[in-house]
Write a protein that binds this DNA or RNA. Structure first.
Lengths: 402, 402
DNA sequence: TAGCAATAATTGATGCTGTCAAATAATTCG
DNA sequence: CGAATTATTTGACAGCATCAATTATTGCTA
C-alpha cells in the first residue's frame, strides 16, 4: 500500500477538449503567454484566460514574473507577456520499466523530470515475482516522496511486447515469456494506486513527443535498436497502437539477406543481423572467440578488425533499411533513433545513413534522423509520461481491484 | 464554365464536430435509427434529433418508412425505428482520375455511387493538355447532369504521386513527369467550381473506408498493385498523409533480392520484381518473346509454363512481404489489395498469402486481407469520395481563381 | 380488444462553454 | 507625459448538448 486516501484530490480535472488542448500546450510548450496559447490551439484569448483561472487556483499552473525589459522582449512595446507554466511538482507520477533481469522505477512530476530512482533485481520473470518487485520499487519511491504521495496520479509500467493498455493486460511478451498476464489489477490492488500498463516503446515515444525531440512534430517516430528492433509511431497527433495491439513491429521485417537466420525461425529478419545478439554472434564467429562480450566486439570494430567492422556494417545496413521503411510508409518529419544499441551507434552510423538515404523515397528523405542514448531510467520515465498523457487527456481509467 | 451561380446553395452546413459525426454516421452506416446513431457517436438521442431536423428540411437526409412487422424487427416490442439515410442525389460531385494516356471522370451523389461516366484520351501529359482534358470531361459530365449542376459540391482530381491537397499542387508525379504543377487553381478558374486535388491511392482509401470494406474499421490500409505498388493508410480514424506529403510509399522498399534492378536505379525494390512491367519483362526474358503482352504472359502462367509461373510467384512473394510490412508497422485490422494488377491476382495469390503469413508478426497476422478489382471508374470515384469527405468534414476550401 | 411493457423519438428547461467586443493593464517610444 | 502597442480580463451573449419528462408506436397478454 502506498497511500490510503489517494486518488481523489490528485486527479486532473480538464472537462472539455478545449481545456485539454490548452493545458497540454502549456505543459509541453510552457512557459508561454496566453495569447500564444490561443493562437496555437485555435481558441480565443478569452477562452485561455477562463480555462487557466481554476488551474491557477489549483496550483497546477503558475504565472512566471512577466519578463519586462526591452532587452528580453525584443524591444517591442506593449504589456509584457505573463508566461504560464505547469508546476512540475503539483502532481506526481511513478514510472517503472520491467526488464528481464531488473525492475527500474522513477518518480517524476508533471513534466516527467526524474525526482527519484529505485531498482530491484529480478530472480525470475514469473508474473508474481515481477508484480512483487514492481510493488517494492513503487513503495520505495512512495517512501522517498513522503507526504507528497497525496499528489500521486498513478503508476505506469512499461513492458516490451503486445500490451493492452486499456485493460492492463500483457497479451504477449516474448522477452518475458508472458502470454495474457494481467498486470494492472494485481498492482493496483496491492498498492492502492491507479495503474497503467503500456508497451515500452510506445511509452518512450509519448515521452519524446511531449517532452523531447518530437515536441513540435505532428508526425513522429522512434526506432529503438538493441536486443530487439522496435518502433513507436505518433501520426496525426495520436499514438498508433494497431487494431490488434501490435504496431511498430520492425524487428522481423524481411529486409536483410535470406542467409541470415533469425531466432524467430524465419530468414532475413532485421533482427537476424541487427540485434545486438546477432552482431555479437557474427563477430564471435568471424574472430573465433566464442566468449566475446558485446563491448569487446565493439572494441575490435573500433580498432578496425575487418570482420568486426563488417558485422556492424551489416547491422547498420539493415537498420537503415528499416528506417527507410518507416519514413516511406508513414512520412514522419522526425525519426528518433534510440535504445541500448546507441552505445555502439558510431559503428552503425555510416551504414545506417547511407542505406537510409539510398532508400528514402522522394520527400521522405527530408525526414530528420535524430539520435539519443536513453538510460534505463529514461525508459521508466516513458512509463510515467504515458500516465501523464492519459491523465491529461482524461483517458486514465484508474485500475483498482474490484 | 460548368455553372454560373454554383457554390452557395450546394455547400454542406454542419457547424459543430458533433453534427459532422452524426451526419457521417448516417452517410456511412445508414439507413440507421436515431438511437443507434446516438449510441455509435457517443451523443444523446436528443442531439441526434435536433441535428437531423435541419438536415431533413434541407432534404439531404430522409426518413425511410418505419419498418414495422415482427418479422423484420426481430419480434421486439416498442416503437419501430425510423431509419435515417442520406439522400444520394441531394448533392452531386465530380471525380476525375488522371492516367498518363487517358482522363476518366464520373459524376456521383453523396454516397459516391456512379451516375455518369466520361473519358478523354490524352495526347501528352503536358499540364496544360491535362487541364484541358479534365475540364472537358467535367463539362461533359456537367452537361449530363443538366439542371442538377446547382447541387454540385465540387470536382475532385486524383493524381498519382506526391500531392498537396491543401494547395491543389502536384509536388512530384514521376508517372506524369510533373514537379510543382498547380492543378486546382487553373481548373477552378476554368470551370467556376471548387476543386480538390488528391493523391490517387489516398482518394481510393477514403472511398473504401467510407463506402467500402473499411467501413467498420478504425485502422485500415489499401495496397495497390499494378504498374506501381502503392499504399494508403487510415489510422486512428484519419488519413495518413505524411509530414512532407509522402506516405505509403511501398514500391521502393528494399524487400526483394538485390539482383533485381529497379527503374529508379536502385536494387531490391518491390517494384523491381512486382510491378506489372517487371513481371512482363521477366516473362519476356524467360520465354525469349520480346513482344509479349501482359495478358499473354498471364496466359502462359495459367498454362503452367514454369518460367512464367516463377515470375508471378516472385512478384507475389515481394507483394506479400510488402503487406507484412504494412501489417507489422501499422497494425490495421483490414488490408484491401487492389489495383490493375488484380486481373492476374490468382497468379500472385499463393505467394502473397504464404509470404504474408510467414512475416506477419504475432497479432498482426489477425489482419484480414481483402481483395477487390477496381475499374478505372472506381479510381475516379475515389476522387469524388475525397471531395465528399472534405465537404462533410468542413475542410473543403473551395479553390477559385483569385 | 384493452391494457401493459418496451422501445423510439421529441420537447423544453437547463447549464456549460467558447466567442465577441469592450475595457483594463503595462509597457516602449518620442 | 501622452500616444501607440500589445497582453489580459471582463461581462454579455449565443449556441449546443444533456437531462428528464413526454409523446409515439409497436408486441404481447389476458
Amino acid at each position: 500500500m502506498i497511500a490510503s486516501g489517494t486518488g481523489e484530490d490528485a486527479r486532473l480535472t480538464l472537462r472539455t477538449p478545449a481545456s485539454v488542448d490548452i493545458f497540454t500546450r502549456i505543459l509541453t510548450h510552457g512557459p508561454i503567454g496566453r495569447v500564444d496559447v490561443g493562437r496555437q490551439t485555435g481558441l480565443s484569448q478569452a477562452a485561455v484566460t477562463k480555462t487557466v483561472a481554476p488551474l491557477l487556483l489549483d496550483g497546477i499552473v503558475a504565472v512566471d514574473r512577466p519578463l519586462a525589459g526591452a532587452a528580453l522582449t525584443g524591444a517591442a512595446p506593449g504589456r509584457p507577456v505573463h508566461p504560464l507554466r505547469v508546476v512540475p511538482s503539483a502532481r506526481l507520477v511513478l514510472g517503472v520499466k520491467v526488464n528481464p533481469d531488473e525492475v527500474i522505477g522513477v518518480a517524476t512530476g508533471m513534466t516527467a523530470a526524474i525526482l527519484h530512482v529505485a531498482r530491484r533485481p529480478l530472480g525470475s520473470t514469473d508474473p508474481a515475482a515481477v508484480v512483487e518487485a514492481v510493488a517494492q520499487v513503487a513503495e520505495e519511491l512512495g517512501g522517498l516522496l513522503g507526504d507528497r504521495v497525496d499528489r500521486l496520479i498513478g503508476l505506469g509500467v512499461a513492458v516490451s511486447g503486445d500490451v493492452d493498455a486499456a485493460t492492463g493486460i500483457v497479451r504477449d511478451s516474448p522477452l518475458l515469456g508472458w502470454r495474457g498476464v494481467p498486470l494492472a489489477h494485481p498492482l493496483a490492488a496491492r498498492l492502492g494506486v491507479p495503474v497503467r500498463v503500456d508497451n515500452d516503446v510506445r511509452a518512450l515515444t509519448i515521452a519524446e513527443h511531449w517532452f523531447g525531440v518530437g515536441r513540435d512534430s505532428g508526425s513522429f517516430a522512434v526506432v529503438t535498436i538493441g536486443s530487439g528492433i522496435g518502433c513507436g509511431l505518433y501520426l496525426n497527433d495520436d499514438v498508433v497502437s494497431g487494431a490488434h495491439g501490435v504496431a511498430g513491429e520492425l524487428g522481423h521485417l524481411p529486409l536483410a539477406s535470406l542467409d541470415a537466420v533469425c531466432v524467430c525461425g524465419r530468414r532475413g529478419c532485421v533482427e537476424a543481423v541487427a540485434s545486438s545478439g546477432a552482431v555479437l554472434r557474427a563477430v564471435r564467429t568471424v574472430t573465433d572467440a566464442p566468449r566475446l562480450t558485446l563491448a569487446e566486439a565493439a572494441a575490435l570494430a573500433r580498432e578496425g578488425v575487418p570482420g568486426a567492422v563488417a558485422a556492424f556494417d551489416r547491422a547498420g545496413t539493415a537498420i537503415g533499411a528499416a528506417l527507410a521503411v518507416v519514413a516511406n510508409l508513414t512520412g514522419p518529419d522526425t525519426v528518433l533513433v534510440a535504445g541500448e544499441g546507441m552505445a555502439e551507434f558510431e559503428l552503425y552510423e555510416r551504414a545506417i545513413r547511407s542505406t537510409f538515404a539510398a532508400h528514402a523515397f522522394g520527400a521522405a528523405a527530408d525526414c530528420v534522423l535524430v539520435t539519443r542514448a536513453h538510460s534505463f531510467e529514461d525508459w521508466a520515465r516513458g512509463a510515467a509520461a504515458s500516465v501523464i498523457r492519459a491523465a491529461v487527456r482524461q483517458e486514465f481509467q484508474p485500475t483498482f481491484s474490484g
